[in-house]
Nucleic acid binder design. Structure first.
Lengths: 109, 109
DNA sequence: TCTGGATATTCGGATATGCGAATATATCTA
DNA sequence: TAGATATATTCGCATATCCGAATATCCAGA
């Protein structure tokens, strides 16, 4: 059975909602430097461990990251480096927009 | 004053939350084909006009779209085509991931 | 200035999301 | 198997988001 357009958009939005949180964005950029376990993420971001675990679950559920047990630890890594590309793009769009606004404000002094 | 890392991540997440909704994604892809007014968006997506207006406001607030009055109508357009690039990337990441899962399932029959 | 078409806002309620705190589960090692 | 470390889950609550329905605002033209 072919998924409807609506269903595809729902799924698309679901992935997007995975990146719609500051903590998850921070985690993704940490993972962009290489696979890391939960304790290290917790330490690098200075956040409570349960908080990190809950956000990691969201990232897993939205297929943005993958996990792999390594003995006592669980190693997390990006599913795909393009996740960071997308995040960078959105950030750039924002910056470009704000810069344009600043220019307009300055030029109308 | 320099915005903190946390503040930057909050802003980054805010933009991302702009694309974290199926209706808004649909609107963005409509706008990708060129500037459109609210009535046309409403017709093309077959949605109630207040619903479209509310989502357009979110898109404006997150700097993802721009609006411009043209007489009686208001023309909306993408702030930056890279918004669509980012959306496509995230969709591709998802598809690649799901395809990989399907392959694993099939190969283990 | 009145009218109609285009767009935006508000309200109330349902649902979702995030967090801290506490606790559970899993794995290794002695 | 007991203890220690790593990770995940649950609960209760506060907050945010979404929607439909109703209504308000804005602008062009008669």
């Amino acid at each position: 059975m072919i998924p409807s357009q609506d269903e595809l958009r729902r799924l698309h939005a679901e992935i997007c909602s995975g990146v719609a949180d500051p903590i998850r964005i921070a985690i993704l950029y940490v993972l962009n430097e290489g696979p890391v376990n939960v304790t290290d993420i917790t330490a690098r971001l200075d956040l409570p461990q349960p908080t990190v675990s809950r956000h990691l679950r969201v990232l897993r559920d939205t297929h943005l990251v993958l996990s792999e047990r390594q003995g006592q630890n669980i190693l997390y890594k990006l599913t795909d480096p393009r996740v960071i590309t997308a995040l960078d793009l959105l950030r750039d769009v924002y910056h470009a927009r704000i810069s344009a606004q600043v220019r307009v404000l300055n030029s109308s002094q």
